[in-house]
């Protein structure tokens, strides 16, 4: 579960990036967070990952009160959230098997388990046959699928996707969205930050819209009009 209560974030000068934001996301939900660049989406994601501290308000993620998570416990906290980025952020010097395995090595998983689980995840995202390929040898859509496999391999409760289709053409974008939907069906809470109105309108999910740091709408099955 994710909950924000009266969360604000101001940087040193100017308009606050987030202004008194309240939201509650239950386990197993699929939620779009919409907003133009500069709306405060990125700040919101950074707060959820405890990369940034909110100036005000209370943030709870997976029963962790983020204000109480100490610096040295941040890694442990982050292992509960799988993250996917617009630019994929794969390790370029390793093949995709090692990229996914890396996420498990980070948490100290035994080698035996890594060998079992990584192929499983790669076949879930449809890339089992390409496990020896390097990121540069894959298309954008394929790279994003590797990133999703990596985000999910440690079975996080929440998957946070920041503009996952931003660098992809329409076909690939739809494939990624279907994959995220499938993951959500298997029980993972999925949070997708995007400004792709076409996809959001077609998928009929809960949509939270942020404009200039303020939460302006939060409705189930909403469509987004600019």
């Amino acid at each position: 579960m994710i909950s924000l209560e009266h969360v604000s974030k101001s940087y040193t000068a100017g308009i606050p990036a987030l202004n008194d934001v309240n939201m509650e996301i239950e386990d197993g939900e699929f939620v779009f967070i919409m907003g133009d660049s500069g709306s405060g989406k990125s700040t919101l994601i950074k707060i959820l990952l405890k990369e940034l501290e909110p100036s005000e308000g209370k943030v709870t993620v997976n029963n962790f009160n983020l204000a109480r998570v100490r610096r040295r416990s941040i890694p442990k906290f982050r292992r509960n959230i799988g993250v996917v980025f617009q630019d994929f952020r794969l390790l370029k010097d390793r093949n995709i098997y090692d990229n996914v395995a890396f996420a498990m090595k980070v948490v100290g998983a035994p080698t035996r388990e890594i060998k079992k689980k990584v192929p499983m995840m790669l076949s879930l995202v449809g890339l089992a046959a390409k496990y020896k390929s390097f990121p540069r040898q894959l298309s954008g859509g394929e790279q994003q699928r590797v990133a999703i496999a990596r985000a999910l391999v440690n079975e996080p409760k929440i998957l946070l996707a920041d503009e996952p289709t931003g660098n992809l053409d329409a076909n690939n974008a739809w494939e990624i969205m279907r994959l995220l939907e499938e993951i959500n069906r298997r029980g993972t809470t999925v949070l997708v930050v995007t400004h792709n109105t076409e996809i959001v309108n077609a998928m009929n999910k809960r949509v939270i819209t942020i404009k200039k740091g303020v939460l302006v709408s939060d409705e189930k099955g909403d469509t987004y009009e600019d």
Binding site: L49, R72, P75, K76, F77, R78, R79, V83, R89, L91, F102, A103, V106, V107, R150, N154
Partner: peptide, 16 residues
């Protein structure tokens, strides 16, 4: 730098 940022986001501990 980028790689280290990725490691941290995945939840790699300090020692790692």
């Amino acid at each position: 730098k980028e790689e280290i940022a990725i490691m941290k986001l995945i939840g790699a501990g300090d020692m790692f």
